[in-house]
Every structure is written in C-alpha cells, then in structure tokens.
C-alpha cells in the first residue's frame, strides 16, 4: 500500500489528479499497485517529504521543483527567473529532452519523476502600489521562498528580500512587516493574501513545474510492465491536472477581480529580465552544470 504525500487540500487540482493517478495505476496493474494520498502536508513539509522519499519513507508524492533544487542542483535551472517564456514554453521544455535530463538527475537521488504537473506562473503582489517597472519595487519588503535564487532576484530588482515561513505571511502583509510576496493565482486566492495585498502585477517571473514522483525503492519493486503502466497513469493524470489547473486559474482570477483586486499588466518585461543578468551569472558560477541547461531551454522553440 503506497503512501502518497501532497501539500494541497482536498479538491485542489493536484489532489484530484493524484487521486485519479493512484486509482488508474491500481486498475492498470490489477491491484499490484495501490495507495492512498495524505493531503495537506500532514506527513510533513515538502523539504522533509523529499528526504523521506529518498529513503523510502513515502512512496509517491507531488512536489514543486523549487525546493528539489536543494537536493538535486540541476533542477535549480527551473528556478531561474524568466527562464521560460510562458507556460506553453515550459510544457514544451519539460516534455522534451531537458525534462528527461532533469528526471535522470532526480533518479540519481532516489526520486523517479513520472510526469510534470503545473503550478502556473508566479507574479508579485503587494499592499502599497502597482508594479510596472523594477523601480516600483525599490525599498519594498517582499517575502520570498527559502532559496538563494529568489532572494537574489528580489534584490536585483531593488526590493528587500525577506525569507519567511508561509504561515506567517498573511499576518505580516496585514500589519506591514512585509509589503508584498509573490505567488500564482490560486495560491494568492486560497491564502487570502488578496485581502491584505490587493495589487497583483503580472510579472510572471517564475513558472515552476511540479513533478509526480515515485520513490526509487517502491519503483524497483515493480515489474517493467507495471512500471510502464504506472508511468502511463501518471502521464494521463498530468494531462488531467493541467486542464484542472487552467480552470482553477481562471476561476481564481475571476473571483479576485470581483473581490476588487487591482491587476497590472506588464506589456514589456525586458527591464525585469535585464535586471536578472547578475542572478544568472551567480547561479552559473555556483553551479556550472546549469549553463548547458539554460542554453537548451532558450533554444527550445
């Protein structure tokens, strides 16, 4: 009986897709694979769960690729700001040779990535003013996830990067400990951050893919036919998840527009992108394996 880790609540696109994955996998393997999804991160944080998967404490999971970079350095390439042109570009890259290369790197660390899920694009939001150019961010405090790249990104844009636990962000936005944060539409909605930070500026600086993975230990116990069937079920569920996700994004955006948030479209992102040169330079310097991957992603049409 496989144990599945998931950070999202019941009914969320990822949750629904994961549940459909394990059901389909059970059908396709005549019950040789079966399992249960534990939602809401009750089995621990994502960092802990990655570690658990590596030693076989959990059998399958849906991870955002951001935190995986700490364990699998190559994966950090997707955390580079503006690396993907848009969500469709990200799909083409991940479903192609670059995605395969990242899967191989993860496999070496005990994580068998079966399919890529979506988490849309992340944009900045804040409680003070719309952001049209990097100058608008000057002096503002932005909460970022714990990763050098995200800290470097906000600093390169002139903001004050403040790493902070997700659970503290709402109160901090409300009271001004931080001025803003960044996330995708559904999270901006479900976290209620829109209530206290109503300027959502479409920088779309990060497009982070997610992975549906199985632990190498559980994977090794399957026959090649079962592996094939499970992989097929995963890829079908990814297709399903991407569709659900797109619907969820639309739903959240419409809801929040009705709730009175203010969206700022950014026609020309080049000022933001140009500011990223030092972030890229430092990332490549720290981790030379990123250079060829960056090239390949840029060359993917």
């Amino acid at each position: 009986d496989w144990k599945g880790w998931n950070v999202h609540p019941a009914g969320y696109p990822v949750t629904v897709a994961m549940e459909s994955f394990i059901k389909e996998a059970e059908k396709a393997t005549d019950g040789r694979v079966s399992g249960r999804v534990y939602n809401g991160a009750i089995l621990g944080s994502q960092e802990d769960a990655i570690q658990m998967m590596q030693v076989g404490g959990i059998d399958f999971a849906e991870f955002n690729l951001g935190p995986i970079g700490a364990s699998v350095p190559e994966v950090n390439v997707v955390s580079l700001p503006f690396i993907f042109k848009d969500v469709e570009h990200m799909h083409r890259v991940m479903d192609g040779p670059v995605g395969d290369e990242l899967s191989k790197a993860m496999e070496k660390k005990g994580i068998i990535s079966l399919a890529w899920y979506d988490s849309g694009s992340r944009s900045f939001y804040d409680s003070r003013k719309p952001i049209k150019t990097p100058e608008d961010m000057k002096g503002m405090k932005f909460r970022v996830m714990n990763n050098e790249l995200y800290v470097g990104m906000v600093e390169a844009l002139g903001g004050n990067a403040t790493p902070m636990a997700y659970s503290e962000v709402y109160q901090s936005l409300k009271t001004g400990v931080v001025d803003g944060a960044e996330n995708n539409w559904p999270s901006y909605d479900s976290s209620n951050h829109f209530e206290v930070a109503k300027y959502y500026s479409l920088t779309q600086h990060l497009i982070l893919p997610e992975t549906l993975s199985v632990s190498a230990k559980a994977w090794a116990k399957l026959s090649p036919e079962d592996q094939k069937a499970v992989r097929k079920a995963a890829q079908d569920s990814a297709e399903f998840q991407r569709k659900l996700w797109a619907e969820k994004v639309t739903e959240s955006r419409e809801k929040l527009i009705k709730a009175g948030i203010q969206i700022t479209e950014i026609e020309d992102k080049s000022a933001f992108q140009d500011a990223m040169a030092p972030v890229y330079a430092k990332a490549v310097k720290d981790n030379p394996t990123l250079a060829p991957l960056i090239e390949k992603i840029r060359n993917t049409k």
Binding site: G139, K141, N146, V151, N160, A161, T162, P163, M164, V177
Partner: peptide, 12 residues
C-alpha cells in the same frame, strides 16, 4: 529590516 532596509536572510 527597519534601519538598514536590508533584511539579513540567514537569521531564519
């Protein structure tokens, strides 16, 4: 955060 406007990121 308040005086230098440069939050030390290592503290947490």
């Amino acid at each position: 955060r308040y005086v230098l406007n440069d939050t030390p990121t290592w503290v947490e």
